[in-house]
């Protein structure tokens, strides 16, 4: 069969895999929902949780669609569709595809791939990203047991430990927001991919983060009013969307 990066068979195979992953999500959702009933949890709250999760996911998911569009220009549509639905991320797939192609003396975007190049890219992407999928079944249970036994020994410390993990993760990303601030005083850091950016461009993420944080604070204060309790479900999605919207004028101004 003659090869094309957008061959219908590739769409079919990617579609089957995406369907299986979708089925896994539905399976775990139903399983957890049943458990909430057994535990006697407030079903109204659970429905709100689902609604918030769905609303919150929309903007980041649209960003993933944009990555699929960018990658589809060189890799065809089925492969990025699969790779970004199952594990994958934009930066990872680009690196993996580039490594696979440069080993064959090719570069990404230099023209349409032939079947052999496609298979090589596919294998490099799949094998390299696969670790978490089998490592979780292998060590997940042991990690959870470790957490449980820590809780049995000292419940208060176990809760602090958990909070410290979350804070550690959030602090790393807060630091990351400031990573380009050095453009203010370091001209060398302003050159990115051969393009010279403005000195203040590193402040854009900082302003966006501050705007999002401010909205969250306002939501938090408003939520205390009896009539505004409903806001708690929308606080994070609202601060995300406002932050993203603020990025547009701020980038025009500082970027």
């Amino acid at each position: 069969m003659s090869f094309d990066v957008n061959h219908w068979i590739l769409f079919l195979m990617a579609g089957i895999l995406v369907a299986v992953v979708l089925a896994q999500s539905v399976f775990f959702l139903i399983k957890a929902l049943r458990r909430t009933k057994e535990l006697g949890m407030d079903q109204k709250k659970i429905r709100k949780t689902m609604l918030t999760a769905a609303i919150f996911t929309i903007a980041p998911a649209v960003a993933i669609v944009i990555s699929v569009m960018v990658l589809s220009k060189t890799l065809g549509l089925p492969l990025p569709w699969l790779r970004l639905s199952v594990v994958g991320s934009m930066s990872y797939e680009t690196v993996a595809a580039n490594n696979a192609l440069s080993a064959m003396g090719q570069t990404l975007g230099a023209g349409s791939l032939d079947a052999q190049q496609f298979v090589n890219v596919l294998i490099v992407m799949t094998v390299s990203i696969m670790l978490g999928i089998w490592l979780v079944p292998l060590i997940g249970k042991k990690l959870q047991k470790g957490m449980k036994s820590m809780e049995n020994r000292d419940k208060r410390w176990a809760n602090i430990f958990q909070a410290a993990l979350f804070i550690g993760m959030i602090a790393s990303f807060l630091g990351f927001v400031f990573c380009d601030v050095s453009r203010l005083w370091d001209p060398a850091s302003r050159v990115v991919d051969g393009v010279t950016l403005s000195a203040t461009s590193g402040l854009v993420p900082v302003v966006v983060m501050a705007a999002s944080a401010l909205i969250m604070v306002i939501c938090g204060l408003l939520m205390k009013l009896p009539k505004m309790k409903w806001l708690s479900e929308y606080a994070l999605p609202i601060s995300l969307i406002v932050g993203m919207a603020v990025a547009i004028p701020v980038t025009a101004w500082l970027g």
């Binding site: 903007a59 980041p60 960003a63 959030i170 990303f173 807060l174 990351f176 927001v177 854009v204 993420p205 900082v206 966006v208 983060m209 501050a210 705007a211 999002s212 944080a213 401010l214 909205i215 969250m216 606080a235 994070l236 601060s239 995300l240 969307i241 406002v242 932050g243 993203m244 603020v246 990025a247 980038t251």
Partner: peptide, 9 residues
């Protein structure tokens, strides 16, 4: 700017 907007809130 999706990450800064997310981690601010």
């Amino acid at each position: 700017q999706i990450l800064p907007a997310l981690f601010g809130g």
